[in-house]
Amino acid sequence: MSEDDLPPGMERRLSLRILNYWRSIRQDDAFPAKGDLDPAAMSDIWGYCVILKIEGNEADPLVDFCGDEIKKLCGEDVTGKTISTAPPKCLITNGLNLYTRALAKRVPITYGDEFENDKGVKVLFRSAILPLSEDGTTIDHFLCATNCRLDEPDTIDGDEA
C-alpha cells in the first residue's frame, strides 16, 4: 500500500504510523515483545518492516525478518544476514544504522537521511527503530520500518521507490 492509497485521516508518515502501532501494543512502560506484533494489524506497514535480532548480536544485529517491499528495495532477501554482511549500499545498512543509539537510549528513534545506492542514485529515506523485549526491559529485538524516495533527475516528484 503506497501513501497515496491510505484511507483519509490516516497518518501519512510511515515512521509515525509504526510508532503509533508500537505504542498501542505497549503495556505501561514495558517494551512490547516480538510475539506481540500482529502483521495483520499493520498490513499497510508490514512490507516496509525489518526485525533485527539484538540478543547475542549487539555489535552486528541479525536480520530476523525482512518485509517484501524492503526485499525489492534491497534487490535481495537479506533475512538471516547481519547488518555488516548485507549489501553495503542498500536501505538496511544505511537506513537502520542508528540502532546503536536506540540501544543506548532505550527509546524509539525516527530519523531520515540520504545515501547513494549501487547505481549512483541518491536515496532519501526515513526510518523508525523501536525496541522489543521478551521480559519488557531487556531489548532483544528491534522493530524497524523504513521507506525511501529515489532522487533521480528524471523522476517525477513524489514518485515513491
Binding site: 515512521s15 505504542r23 527509546v107 524509539p108 528513534i109 525516527t110 530519523y111 531520515g112
Partner: peptide, 22 residues
C-alpha cells in the same frame, strides 16, 4: 522521561501532542 528521539521538529511536536492525548 524520554519517550522517543526524532530528527524532525514537526514530527517531534506531533508525537508529543499525541502522547498527551494518550
Amino acid at each position: 522521561v524520554i519517550a522517543s528521539v526524532q530528527d524532525d521538529q514537526d514530527e517531534a511536536i506531533y508525537e508529543a501532542q499525541r502522547l498527551l492525548q494518550g
